[in-house]
C-alpha cells in the first residue's frame, strides 16, 4: 500500500514540477505586463526539440542544452519586441490572441525547422531506477525536481536580493509608479519574456528524457501550466510552485486511486472547487481591483 502511495507521489511530483515551471513562466510575464502568454508551452517544446537537433548535429549534450536554452531565450525576447511591445493599443483580449497566434506560429515553424516525429534525449544520469521502500524513481526525475527547486530558489534570490529583480517586482505592483521612479519598464518586459522562455526551455531539456518531445507538445503543457498558475493565484511565484505540484499529484493519485479515464477531470474539478471557494486562488494577491 505504502509502496503504491510512494510510487504515485513520485509520478505526481515529477510531472507537477514541469507544470510548476510552466506556471512560473506564466506568472513572471503576467506580473510584468498583464499578458497571459499562451505560447509558454512552446518554449518548453523549443527547448527540448532544439537540444535534440543540436545534439544530432554533433554537439555534446551539455552544449546542446545550453545553446537550446539561449536560443529559446532569444525567441522569448523577440516575441516581446516584435509582437507584444508593438501592440500598444491592444486590449487584454487582443494580447491573448497575439500569444495564441505566436504559439500556432512557433508550432508551425518547429514542424518546418525540425520535423513531425517524436524524439527523446538520453537520461543525463543513467536509466537505472533507484528504489525507495519498494517504489522506484529514475535519476532523471530527481534531476527534474532538483532543477525546478534550483530555479525557484534562484528566482527568489533574484527578486529579493538584486536591484533588477526588485525593479521587476516594483513594475508588477504598479507600472506607472515604477516608471516614475525611473524603472525602464520596456527593459523589464523584455527581461521577463527572456526569463520565462529560459525557464520553459530548461523544463523542456530536463523532461525530454522522460516524456519525449515533438513539435506539438506545447499546447497541453500551456493548458496545465495556466491552470496551475490560476490554482496558485496568477501572479504569485510561490502559488505557481504549489499549483503545479498540486495538479501533478492530483493527476497521479486520480489515476492511481480513482479512475485513469477521468484523471484530467479530477485535476480540473479541484481547480473549479478551489476557485468557487477561494476566488483568488490559493496564494493570490490580496490587492484591491483598480478600475
Amino acid at each position: 500500500m505504502l509502496e503504491s502511495f510512494l510510487q504515485f507521489t513520485f509520478s505526481g511530483l515529477t510531472v507537477g514540477a514541469v507544470y510548476a515551471l510552466v506556471a512560473l513562466g506564466f506568472t513572471i510575464i503576467y506580473n510584468a505586463s498583464d499578458v497571459v502568454n499562451f505560447a509558454q508551452g512552446e518554449f518548453v517544446m523549443i527547448g527540448g526539440m532544439s537540444t535534440v537537433f543540436l545534439r544530432q548535429d554533433g554537439l555534446p549534450l551539455a552544449a546542446a542544452a545550453a545553446l537550446a536554452i539561449v536560443l529559446t531565450t532569444v525567441i522569448g525576447i523577440l516575441l516581446d519586441k516584435l509582437a507584444i511591445a508593438r501592440a500598444k493599443r491592444a486590449s487584454v483580449l487582443s494580447l491573448v490572441i497575439i500569444t495564441i497566434g505566436a504559439s500556432i506560429f512557433l508550432r508551425g515553424a518547429a514542424q518546418l525547422v525540425f520535423d513531425k516525429q517524436l524524439h527523446r534525449l538520453p537520461a543525463f544520469a543513467g536509466e537505472d531506477p533507484l528504489t525507495l521502500m519498494g517504489a522506484t524513481i529514475l535519476p532523471q526525475s530527481l534531476l527534474v525536481l532538483a532543477g525546478a527547486a534550483a530555479i525557484f530558489v534562484g528566482l527568489w534570490l533574484f527578486f529579493n536580493r538584486s536591484r533588477t529583480g526588485k525593479a521587476v517586482l516594483a513594475t508588477a505592483n504598479n507600472r506607472l509608479a515604477a516608471r516614475l521612479v525611473g524603472v525602464d519598464t520596456a527593459f523589464i518586459m523584455a527581461l521577463s519574456f527572456g526569463l520565462s522562455a529560459a525557464i520553459g526551455a530548461t523544463a523542456g531539456v530536463l523532461i525530454t528524457p522522460l516524456t519525449l518531445t515533438s513539435y506539438d507538445v506545447g499546447l497541453m503543457l500551456a493548458l496545465k501550466g495556466f491552470a496551475a498558475a490560476m490554482l496558485g493565484g496568477l501572479g504569485n511565484p510561490f502559488g505557481a510552485l504549489v499549483g503545479g505540484l498540486a495538479i501533478g499529484l492530483i493527476e497521479a493519485f486520480g489515476a492511481g486511486y480513482v479512475s485513469s479515464e477521468y484523471k484530467d477531470a479530477s485535476a480540473f474539478l479541484v481547480i473549479l472547487l478551489i476557485l468557487f471557494l477561494m476566488p483568488r486562488g490559493l496564494f493570490g494577491k490580496k490587492t484591491v481591483e483598480r478600475v
Partner: peptide, 16 residues
Amino acid sequence: ETYGPKDADMTPQLTN
C-alpha cells in the same frame, strides 16, 4: 487501465 494521448507518465496505472 487507460491513459490520455498526451500523458507524460503512466507509472500510477502500471503500479495498479
